[in-house]
Amino acid sequence: MSRLRRFSLWRAAAPVALLCAGLLFATSATNARGTDLRPSRNTTLAGLVEEQSRRSATLTRQHAALSGDIEKLQTQQGAIEPKLAKQLKDLSVQVGTTPVTGPGLTVTLKDAPREVVKDNPDIDADWLVIHQQDIQAVVNALWAGGADAISIQNHRVISTTGIKCVGNSVVLHGVPYLPPYKITAIGDRRKLQQALDDSQYIENLQDYVVRFQLGYEVKNESNVAMPAYEGTLDLQSATVPGFETTPSVSPSASGR
């Protein structure tokens, strides 16, 4: 009798166990979304950065294509007044949404070589890598030198561009990048070079270039073809110096 009862209990429990297992497999498949839930130990920061950069580039291209479709539809609705069309064109150049070409400079920044890091274990690691302040100093000097347009890693710099350090990478427009960092400016090459030479911050950076072999190279460019900025121009928040700030939500964030 007890044997028959155990057999009956097993027959009843088996379907429940199979159902639970099925639910677990379905949950794992949904969470993974076709990816490995336990990635290889060989996964590196460089690989993650490259994957994120590729994904961002794909989304940027899609955004640019959709923006182009919108402009075509707007054109089909009727011709724009010539005076207004010229104003829009002039503003687009200033904003950075129009490709530009011309002579300029490219500044390349690199971390110290691996052998230098290995040979100086007691040196603060922050001294051996390029930081956001270094990139910002170069960009600010180039603007001060009268640059007409600037790009970083071949991405156009606009008024809302932010440069941030995250771990061993620098984030630009929400996308992480690893060195070397290439900063290109279009403008009078002599004035641009003079502005770099006059920068006190860059002068201090040169000390680390000599002591720890940080990379700092300036190259003359006879003709630079700089792409337009293709990201969103939405401004989530902003403050005016000297005015009291009050919490606010942008229209795009509120959905209204």
Rank of each mutant, 00 (worst) to 15 (best):
V249H: 04
G34P: 01
G215L: 02
A149T: 01
Q52K: 15
R6M: 10
T161N: 07
T75N: 07
K164W: 03
P180S: 05
D36S: 15
I152T: 04
L233K: 09
S8G: 15
V170H: 01
V171F: 01
G255T: 04
T98I: 10
V224C: 07
R189L: 11
S252L: 14
Y229W: 05
R211A: 09
A185K: 00
Q136P: 01
R38N: 11
S28E: 09
P113D: 03
V139T: 09
N223Y: 15
E50F: 11
D234W: 08
P251N: 04
C165A: 15
L205D: 05
G68P: 05
P179Q: 07
V49W: 05
A65P: 02
K164S: 07
I152Q: 02
P103V: 00
N120H: 15
A14Y: 02
A147F: 06
A26I: 04
V240K: 12
I130W: 00
S28R: 10
V209Q: 08
A144Q: 08
E244N: 13
V209L: 02
K86E: 12
G242S: 04
E217Q: 15
D69T: 10
P247A: 10
Q200R: 11
L48S: 10
A225S: 12
N31E: 11
V138F: 02
K83E: 11
R256G: 12
L24G: 04
P15V: 00
D197S: 12
Y201M: 01
Q194T: 12
A21D: 02
K72F: 06
F7R: 14
Q206T: 12
L73Y: 13
W143T: 06
I202N: 03
R38K: 04
Y181F: 12
L91D: 13
A65G: 02
D124I: 00
P103G: 08
R6T: 15
L9W: 06
A79P: 00
P113F: 00
R211F: 06
G68F: 03
R41K: 13
L4D: 15
L73M: 13
S159E: 08
I158K: 01
N223H: 13
S28D: 03
A17G: 06
K164C: 00
A26D: 07
V170P: 00
Q74V: 09
R3G: 13
L142A: 03
R190L: 14
L9S: 14
G22Y: 06
P82D: 06
D188P: 03
E81D: 15
H63C: 04
Q153A: 10
K191S: 14
A17L: 06
F7N: 14
V49F: 01
P15K: 03
E244C: 05
K89L: 11
T27G: 09
D126W: 08
A147D: 09
S40F: 02
V210P: 00
D119V: 06
A12D: 10
A149V: 05
S92K: 12
Y201Q: 10
R6L: 15
V175N: 11
L18V: 01
A238P: 02
L88N: 10
